[in-house]
Amino acid sequence: MQCDYYDAGVCRSCTLMGRPYPLQLSGRVQHVRDLLAAAGDVTWLPPVESPEADYRNKAKMVVGGTAEEPTIGLLDRTGRAVDIRGCGVCTPGVRAVLPVLAEFIGTAGLTPYDVAARRGELKYLLVTDSPDGRVMVRFVLRSQEALPRLRKHLPALLRRLPQLEVVSANLLPEHKAVVEGDREVVLTEASTLPMRVGDHVLHLRPQSFFQTNTTVAAALYRQARAWTQELGPASVWDLYCGVGGFALHCAGEDRDVVGVETSPEAVASARLSAREAGLARVRFEVGDAGSFARAAPDVPELVVVNPPRRGLGAQLGRWLEASRVRHVLYSSCNATTLASDLAAMPSLRPRVARVLDMFPQTAHQEVAVLLERD
């Protein structure tokens, strides 16, 4: 893939840009295999490839410049705002709305936040594109000051962009290196973006996590479902379940599935998807994965874990190692912490694994591993 921003030195976020895709993929696969070599003999399935471009369904864009001439993109190493609204790894649906949003910033008088001066209102634009062409836009603001103007001009924006399903304002008053705050104000009638992935429609609320690459996410869920069908467990836990992708795809007529997630917004979305799919034996709970596992009176036949980059954590890892759980399906976005977690659970041996290329043009990797107790 060729990128003008990368070639000009404007953006170097995609660290492997310009390297032939087959070499990128083989390098990621070898890196993961090297990290997991100490875990023993593993059957490696062929890696899941991704489109090289147009794959990111979510853009987290820094807003700089002025309301009349905003930049939508990132801050460079000097703190200067850089416009990359034509970023080629974002989906066409994301790219299509950014020029209109740039005009809207001026119309609504949304002054971009000046990091150095610590003044201004609009910090970020967070844009998510669904497989059906519907879009969610979140304006990350420093305060409520701009909310009346957002509401006033929103009808005109919706006329310009009829594909907008959800529009919200996220309030981030603190001056710190985070992308969003705790409070969300939904400005449209709809509050969830339907994301059709595999056999299910997953409902994404503004503060819910979702996989960045929809095509590869569908392949990940298909792989999880195939392994689950092969094992045929009567009971499954999906820990760190997010909006329920693994739980819903691993469901079966004779199978009890429980999803656990700390985010109430994500759990509300997962419950809606389960109701729409008519999955009466799938339920979701708000809670900490480790606390849920330690307090449960019994253990399931299969545990699915999809932790954040930091991995499982010591408590859940110790619980899994000491438990009677026969199989664990571990989906990891960080093979380094995956290797550490496997080392802490020697009774659960990797049986089969697969690299899924969720992030082309970067060194990041996604790997799914099926573990079986010795």
Rank of each mutant, 00 (worst) to 15 (best):
T107V: 11
V137T: 12
V97H: 12
G106F: 02
P131I: 12
L101W: 10
Y113Q: 03
C87W: 09
R119L: 02
K123F: 01
T91R: 14
G93C: 12
A156D: 14
P148Q: 00
D129F: 06
I105K: 01
M136C: 05
V94D: 08
C87K: 14
V140F: 07
S143I: 05
A117H: 13
E165N: 07
C87Y: 09
R142E: 09
G88V: 09
V89E: 08
L101M: 11
F104S: 00
L101V: 06
R138Q: 14
V89H: 08
V94I: 14
G88S: 10
A156G: 03
L101C: 06
G133I: 13
A116Q: 14
P162W: 14
T111S: 14
A117G: 09
L122V: 03
A116F: 13
D129C: 10
A102P: 00
P131G: 08
L98V: 12
V94T: 10
P99I: 08
G120P: 02
L161F: 06
E145C: 00
D129V: 09
L147F: 01
L98I: 08
T107K: 10
E103I: 01
I105F: 00
L164M: 02
V135P: 05
V166A: 00
P99F: 04
V140Q: 09
K123V: 05
V115N: 02
L150W: 05
P155Q: 08
C90S: 11
I105C: 00
D129R: 07
E145Q: 12
A116G: 02
V115S: 01
V89M: 11
V100K: 06
P148C: 02
G120M: 06
C90A: 12
L158C: 04
E103C: 10
V89W: 04
T91V: 10
L126K: 09
V100N: 00
T128K: 15
I105G: 00
P112L: 02
A108M: 03
D129G: 03
V97C: 07
V94L: 06
